[in-house]
Design a protein around this nucleic acid. Structure first.
Lengths: 137, 137
DNA sequence: CCAATACTTGCACAATGACGCAAGTATCCA
DNA sequence: TGGATACTTGCGTCATTGTGCAAGTATTGG
C-alpha cells in the first residue's frame, strides 16, 4: 500500500534528481500560454462556442487590438491549447478540448502517483520514478 | 445526448457572455505561478519529495539565489499550489497535492462539459452555463 | 545578551512580454 | 487587374517579472 514511499526520496536534492511523469507534465509551455488573462478569455470563448472561430470573430470578444488577438491565438496554438485551420484567407481556430483534458488529467494523476495518502483512485503500487539514479545524497 | 449544443452559443460574442465553471477554473493565478521554470522545478521537487521541505533545503536544488527561491515559494503559496508551515525560524513548505489534483480534474471536467463529442465519461446532459443571459446577438 | 541561523524585504537592473500602430502578405471577388 | 478582406509581422513603448545583493527581522542556542 505504501510501496511508493520506499522509493520516495528523503531529501529535496534526491527528489530533484528523480525523473518522473510529473516533471514532463509540469512543462511550462502550456502554463505560460494560460497565464495571460486575454488568452484565457479567448480559450474559454473557443471552448464555450463549440465550433471553430475566425480571428475576426474572436477579436470582437476582446478589448485589445486585432493584431494582439491574432498573436495570442498563435501562442495558444504553439502551446497545443488550440488548433488553427486555414481556409482561404480565414484562419479557423478551435479549442483542442480532448488534448487539454488528457493533459490535465494526466498531470493530476502524475501528482497522485507521488501522494500515497491520495488513495481515492486505485494506486498503481509501483514507483512513479522513470529513473532510479542518484540514490545517494 | 446532444442537449449541450442546444444551449451552446452560436457566436464567440455570445460565448464570451456566458458564465460557466470553465471561466472560473481558467483563472490565471495558478497558471502564472506554474509558468516559471524555477517555480515548476520547486513544485515538482516538493511533490516528489513527499514531505515538507525548508526553504534552505529547496534552495540547494536550484541554481538561483536563496532569496529568489523564498520569493518563488511564496508565489506558489499565494497561488494555492503549496502551503507554508512556520515552526520556529524554519518555514516548511509542502505541495498541496490534493488541492492541485482537484483543481486540475475540475478544469478538465469543466472543459468536457462543453464538448459533446467527449462522451468517454458520463455526460451530465445539462447545460454547463451558470447563467443564461445574453442570448440575443 | 550576543552570535548564528532562517527567512523576508528593499532596491536596482535586465529580460520578458503585452500592446497598438503601421506596413506587409495572401486570398477573394467584381 | 484592382480593391477589399483576413491575417501576419516589424517596431517602439510600457508594464511586469525574475534576479542578485544587501540589509532587515525573527528565532534559537550558548
Amino acid at each position: 500500500m505504501t510501496q511508493v514511499s520506499k522509493c520516495q526520496p528523503r531529501s529535496p536534492r534526491q527528489a530533484a534528481r528523480r525523473r518522473a511523469a510529473v516533471d514532463r507534465l509540469l512543462d511550462t509551455t502550456l502554463f505560460k500560454a494560460l497565464s495571460d488573462q486575454t488568452r484565457a478569455t479567448l480559450l474559454a470563448c473557443l471552448i464555450k462556442c463549440g465550433r471553430p472561430c475566425s480571428v475576426s470573430e474572436l477579436a470582437e470578444c476582446c478589448s485589445v487590438d486585432f493584431s494582439v488577438v491574432a498573436r495570442h491565438l498563435s501562442v495558444l496554438a504553439r502551446a497545443g491549447a488550440v488548433e488553427a485551420n486555414k481556409q482561404g484567407r480565414t484562419v479557423w481556430y478551435s479549442a483542442r478540448c480532448a488534448h487539454l483534458c488528457e493533459t490535465l488529467h494526466a498531470l493530476a494523476e502524475a501528482i497522485e502517483d507521488w501522494c500515497p495518502q491520495l488513495e481515492a483512485r486505485e494506486s498503481s503500487d509501483s514507483c512513479p520514478c522513470e529513473d532510479h539514479g542518484g540514490g545517494n545524497d
